[in-house]
Design a protein around this nucleic acid. Structure first.
Length: 425
RNA sequence: GUGACCGUAGCUCAGGUGGUUAGAGCGCCAGGUUGUGGCCCUGGAGGUCGGGGGUUCAAGUCCCCUCGGUCACCCCA
C-alpha cells in the first residue's frame, strides 16, 4: 500500500457498485443518458471539443484577471506552445463555432456538451480538480426568448431528476457600455469603507470590483446593503430584455428570485446572468450558472459580434444533490441468466451457451473458474440472476440443461437445442 | 495559496493515564449439503497501526518532521 501510486489529488476513480453515488459508474451512465435525452427533446445537438486548448483562447475568452485564468489553470508547455486543460467549455465552443463557420448553417445554433474540465483549486466537497460539466448554448441571437429557453432547459434537467429546493437567481449585468459606469459608482461607494473591507475585497476593488458583490463576509454584506444597485445603471435595452425574460419565465411557471448582487466570475458575460443554488451539498452550492455572453466572440477574434447565451452545470454537484435530497437513484440491472458449470466439458458448453444467449439479447453471467457449485450459486445470487443454468456431468450425458428459477427455487430440464428459444420467449 | 480536523484489516470503526502473540462488525474464502444461492452455525485468510526520526527498559498510544485524506476560506460548475 505505502509505495503504490494513487489517483492525482482532486480527481476521482469511478467504480462499479461504489457506495457513494458520485463515484459510481452506474449513476453516471444514468445521469448522462437522461441529459442526452432532454437535450435531444429540446432540439440541441451535441458538440465535443478537445480537452486540450491553446492557453491564449482561454486567457482571452475568460479574461486575464479572472481567478480561473490567473491561478487555476493546468497548463503544459511543449516547444514554444502553451496548452491548457480546458477549465470550462463555453470559450472552446465559441472557438469551434467560429472556426467551422457554424453561422453559415441555417438558423441559430443550439449546442450542448458534457465532459471533463480541469481547475487547479484545492479540492473540497463539490469541487474537484477534474470535474465534469454539462451545458448548452444558443448562438446567433440576442432575443430574450433564447435566454428563457436556456433557463427552461436547465430547469428541466433538475426537474427530471426530481430535485426540489433549488433556487434560481436572476440578474442583468447590462451592456459593455454601461458596466464601467456601475463599476465606478461601486468603487466610489466602497472606497470610504476602506479598512472595513477584507484584504481580498480591497484587492478586488481595483481589479474586479463587481466580484465583491457576492462576498460571504457578513460585515461586507451589511456595507453592500446600501451600495449602488446594478440594475439602476443598466441601459434601456438591457433592461427591456430583462423584463421580457422575466415575463417569459413567468409564462411557463419557472420561479426565480431577482438578485441585484448576482455577478459572474467570467468576463464574457453581459446582460442576463443566472445561477441555480442548492443548499445541502456543502459550501459549493451553485449547481449551475450561466448567462448571455455577447462579447465572447469578439474577445477571441471574431470580426463581427456573435450574440449567445448558455448555461453550465456541474455533474458532480448534480449527483451530490440527488444523493442529498433523496432523489431516486438508478439500480443495477440484474442478470437474466447465470451459468454454473462443473468439469471441463461442461465448462466449454457453458461458454458456448453463454455466447448464444448473449447474442439473443439476454444479460448473461458466468465465472470462468473451477469453483464449487455452491460458490458459483452464491455468485449467481449476488448478481441477482433471475435464472441459473446448471451444467455438469449429468446434463452433458442427457444433453439437457437444468434451469433453476431463483425466485421460486423451481427447476426443470431443457434440451440444449431448445435452450435459447425457451429462455428468450 | 491559507487554515482546521483526521490517517489502525477490502470497508466502517474499538483500542482510559505508553506494558505480554493489535480487536470487532460487515465483506471475502472454505466447511456444515459426495451437484444447488439467500438465513443460520463453524473455521480461515487478511494489518511493517500512512512513512521517517526521536523520547523510553517498553510507542498504535508521547514529541518532531513528512506524506496522504476530508472539510472550510478563497473561487466557481
Amino acid at each position: 500500500m505505502r509505495n503504490m501510486f494513487r489517483n492525482v489529488e482532486g480527481t476521482n476513480d469511478l467504480l462499479p457498485g461504489a457506495q457513494k453515488a458520485i463515484v459510481r459508474t452506474e449513476i453516471w451512465h444514468h445521469v448522462e443518458e437522461v441529459i442526452h435525452q432532454i437535450m435531444l427533446r429540446y432540439g440541441f445537438s451535441e458538440i465535443r471539443t478537445p480537452i486540450l486548448e491553446h492557453t491564449g483562447l482561454i486567457a482571452r475568452g475568460i479574461g486575464q484577471l479572472t481567478d480561473i485564468v490567473s491561478k487555476e489553470m493546468f497548463t503544459l508547455e511543449r516547444g514554444d506552445t502553451s496548452y491548457v486543460l480546458r477549465p470550462e467549455l463555453t470559450a472552446p465552443i465559441m472557438r469551434s463555432y467560429l472556426q467551422h463557420h457554424l453561422e453559415q448553417q441555417s438558423g441559430v445554433q443550439r449546442l450542448y456538451y458534457l465532459g471533463p474540465c480541469f481547475r487547479a483549486e484545492r479540492p473540497q466537497k463539490g469541487r474537484y480538480r477534474q470535474f465534469h460539466q454539462f451545458g448548452a448554448e444558443i448562438i446567433g441571437t440576442d432575443d430574450p426568448r433564447a435566454d428563457a429557453e436556456i433557463i427552461t432547459l436547465m430547469m428541466e434537467v433538475y426537474d427530471t431528476f426530481e430535485l426540489t429546493g433549488a433556487k434560481l437567481r436572476l440578474n442583468t449585468l447590462g451592456s459593455a457600455e454601461t458596466r464601467p459606469k456601475y463599476r465606478e459608482a461601486l468603487i466610489e461607494y466602497l472606497i470610504p469603507f476602506g479598512d472595513a473591507l477584507t484584504a481580498i475585497s480591497r484587492e478586488r476593488l481595483s481589479r474586479n470590483p463587481l466580484r465583491i458583490l457576492d462576498t460571504k463576509v457578513e460585515a461586507e454584506r451589511k456595507i453592500l446593503e446600501n451600495a449602488p444597485c446594478l440594475p439602476d445603471y443598466v441601459d434601456q435595452e438591457s433592461l427591456s430584455n430583462y423584463e421580457s425574460l422575466k415575463r417569459l419565465l413567468r409564462a411557463v411557471e419557472i420561479s426565480f428570485v431577482e438578485d441585484p448582487m448576482l455577478v459572474r466570475g467570467l468576463d464574457y458575460y453581459t446582460r442576463t446572468a443566472f445561477e441555480l443554488e442548492y443548499g445541502g451539498i456543502g459550501a459549493q452550492n451553485a449547481l449551475a450558472g450561466g448567462g448571455r455572453y455577447d462579447l465572447l466572440a469578439s474577445a477571441i477574434g471574431a470580426k463581427n459580434p456573435v450574440p449567445a447565451v448558455g448555461f453550465a452545470a456541474g455533474m458532480e454537484r448534480l449527483i451530490l444533490a440527488m444523493e442529498a435530497s433523496g432523489a431516486p437513484l438508478p439500480t443495477v440491472r440484474p442478470f437474466d441468466i447465470w451459468i454454473v458449470s462443473l468439469g471441463e466439458t461442461a465448462g466449454k458448453k457453458a461458454f458456448e451457451i453463454t455466447h448464444y444467449l448473449r447474442k439473443s439479447g439476454l444479460r448473461v453471467g458466468m465465472e470462468p473458474t473451477k469453483r464449487s457449485m455452491k460458490a458459483q450459486m452464491r455468485l449467481a445470487n449476488r448478481a441477482d440472476a433471475h435464472r441459473v443454468i446448471i451444467l455438469a456431468e449429468q446434463e452433458m450425458q442427457t444433453e439437457t440443461a437444468t434451469v433453476k428459477n431463483m425466485l421460486t427455487g423451481e427447476q426443470k430440464s431443457i434440451p440444449f437445442i431448445e435452450l435459447v428459444e425457451n429462455l428468450t420467449k
